[in-house]
Design a protein around this nucleic acid. Structure first.
Lengths: 223, 223
DNA sequence: TCAAGTGTATTGGTCTGACGTTTGCGCCGG
DNA sequence: CCGGCGCAAACGTCAGACCAATACACTTGA
């Protein structure tokens, strides 16, 4: 194994063993490279790799720190990866979403707060057939993100968020807007919010399933 | 933005734009660094980062290639990340598994082949109270992996695989074996296989839910 | 003729050392 | 007490050299 990969493993192990904890500052590159027995350049490659998956947080002029390792950070790393897989098999990704989103909605139905309901409704304001694609994507992401968040499971929210990365969604919306599907989407969103507000988990779950399936079917015939 | 991060973005964009496709060979580091306008050392950091998330495949003495970008590769990258999150909130991860695994089993029930059933049964052979933890983990991973695989959705299998990373499972099994829970697990696995073989999606789904929940509950009181 | 072995050019792997840039923080003066 | 200055620390980047593995063409022997 190359020295750089060894370094990656060693740093990972230091975190797993507790020698390094969330928020801890690593020794300076110079010092750490000596400790791990490799050059600074090689160590930097290792650090960069760990940085991109949000394990390390490098602050220029200050030092390198272990991130909080919160599930939320999993999203960013995963999104980056999923983005590159977008064209490969959007349908498979949608199938996973069709499993997770309804489940998230069902869980959310039992515990969602009035404030979150308000926030959900807010995502639908100012949306019309004339709204730009970028704005639609943004609001849609927020809508689904809020529901996932209301399910009170950061990992669920993260995975879902990653699978619904903006890039993928943008393409889909671009297609959907050409079919004047904005109204239908808004109506479905509204129905979902109502079900959540009433705490009707079964209905919320069904509505979300239908909602996702609708897009999925459109996508299936569009490909 | 730092030159290294720019390079990461540029390479990513080259893949997204189609300038680079799966399997393509990148220019030599020397040449690519000039093209992107940065030093070789900095470029190498970018390449290393993309390598760890399985976007690039670097072969010493040969060249650097774009990976197949198959969903399967998502697993490895995600596993690495999830491993580091293990202690944080295993319960949340389990909750996601409890959503996905039953769904996977339900899908699998309709399409699983005789060969896959045989393979599933094979994972249970030679297992007893005396089997080593490592072996138990390996067989357990295979069991769940086979079901996810039978659902015929690579992303589903990948996400599930990542969430069930070996490290996490090892700890759990270590605890379970201390409570002589091997027999019970085997019995549950057997029941799941039977349901799958009969194509009973509802039952398979329920059995898997129960199975996962059992471990989840043990975990909840163990923490 | 073909297969095995060999040699070389190509390409990534690693190191060293230098210098630029940013940031944190203590010191100093108002 | 507080704000600004300045130095030291730490990351960012680069250049150049050499090592090591691999691919591939070439040679050689069966």
């Amino acid at each position: 194994m190359a020295v750089t990969d060894e370094a990656i493993t060693k740093i990972k192990d230091m975190i797993l063993s507790g020698e390094l904890s969330a928020g801890d500052k690593l020794p300076p590159e110079q010092e750490l490279s000596e400790k791990l027995g490799l050059s600074r350049s090689s160590l930097r490659e290792a650090v960069k790799a760990l940085e991109i998956i949000r394990v390390l947080d490098v602050r220029r002029g200050d030092g390198t720190y272990v991130t909080s390792l919160e599930p939320k950070l999993l999203t960013e790393a995963m999104t980056f990866i999923v983005d590159l897989h977008q064209d490969k098999s959007i349908l498979e990704i949608f199938e996973v979403r069709r499993i997770l989103e309804p489940a998230a909605a069902a869980i959310a139905a039992g515990r969602i707060s009035a404030g979150e309901i308000t926030a959900l409704r807010a995502t639908m304001a100012d949306i019309s057939e004339a709204t730009s694609v970028e704005s639609l994507v943004e609001h849609d992401l927020m809508f689904h993100g809020l529901i996932a968040g209301a399910a009170n499971n950061s990992y669920l929210a993260s995975v879902l968020d990653a699978l619904s990365s903006g890039t993928v969604r943008a393409r889909i919306w671009r297609g959907l807007t050409q079919e004047k599907a904005v109204d239908r989407t808004l109506a479905e969103h509204a129905a979902i919010i109502d079900a959540l507000e009433r705490g009707d988990a079964e209905l919320a779950k069904a509505l979300v399933t239908v909602h996702i399936s609708g897009v999925e079917n459109w996508l299936r015939q569009a490909l």
